[in-house]
Design a protein around this nucleic acid. Structure first.
Length: 218
DNA sequence: AAGAGCAACAACCGCCTTGAT
DNA sequence: TATCAAGGCGGTTGTTGCTCT
């Protein structure tokens, strides 16, 4: 009795972390397809996933949802992001609502890794020019005093300063990138639904997985 | 060819809010 | 009204792949 209880509690404590495997993704997709979203902790247990509800929710919202758009942030989207960030600051989920298919996490990463970097570079360059030309008034230029709206005042500079590296980055085929991740991280054990489609040269995509699970669901 | 450094992204963490009891 | 669980959000970190030397 007590022993059984101890075993159960130790099993309950076993929580997986880190990258999701393809198996876990398929379990989550199938479960949501059949039972719907919501009550994530219960969902995680019921689906047999050794993940927290939070982890399941995040994985679904940011990655597995069929309507998630991935990669290739367009120039229009860039402008919207910069405009809305100037308006609202780091309200990523609010900004994401104005970019259909984009997630707050993706926008946040995009901002931090690219836009913010280029704005800082542009500000630095701008400040340097000002310091050279107007040393006496340099105390008026203060990085620490930059608010989000002030940062956004560097928008034009930032857009101008987008490096060739960024341009080439925009040309990256994200699905290829993702396929690489799948090949590296996911075990080569596919569920029965997928085995008939296994091809050594076939690159699996989430679209494939999603369409497969739709075909598989009754 | 190898390794160091960097960029990009996925995922986790902690805090806050909200809703149910 | 107080308490607790779940969800939502923003910040941060870890991992991976690419580029450069």
């Amino acid at each position: 009795m007590d022993h059984k209880k101890a075993c159960n509690s130790s099993q309950e404590l076993e929580v997986r972390k880190g990258p999701w495997t393809m198996e876990e993704d398929l379990i989550l997709i199938n479960y949501i397809a059949n039972h719907g979203e919501g009550v994530w902790n219960t969902l995680a247990k019921a689906a047999g996933l050794k993940r927290t509800g939070k982890s399941c929710r995040l994985r679904w919202l940011n990655y597995l949802r069929p309507d998630v758009r991935r990669g290739n942030i367009t120039n229009e989207e860039q402008l919207i992001i910069m405009e809305l960030h100037a308006k609202w600051g780091n309200r990523w989920s609010k900004i994401a609502k104005h970019l259909p298919g984009r997630t707050d996490n993706e926008i946040k990463n995009y901002w931090r890794t690219r836009i913010q970097k280029h704005i800082k570079q542009a500000d630095h360059h701008h400040n340097h020019q000002i310091n050279v030309n107007h040393r006496q008034s340099s105390e008026m230029i203060n990085d620490q005093g930059s608010t989000s709206s002030q940062l956004s005042s560097g928008t034009a500079d930032a857009m101008e300063s987008y490096s060739p590296r960024l341009t080439s980055y925009q040309g990256i085929n994200y699905m290829d990138h993702h396929q690489t991740n799948i090949n590296n991280n996911y075990p080569m054990v596919l569920p029965p639904v997928a085995t008939s489609n296994i091809d050594q040269n076939y690159n699996w995509t989430m679209e494939d997985i999603w369409s497969m699970q739709l075909l598989n669901s009754d």
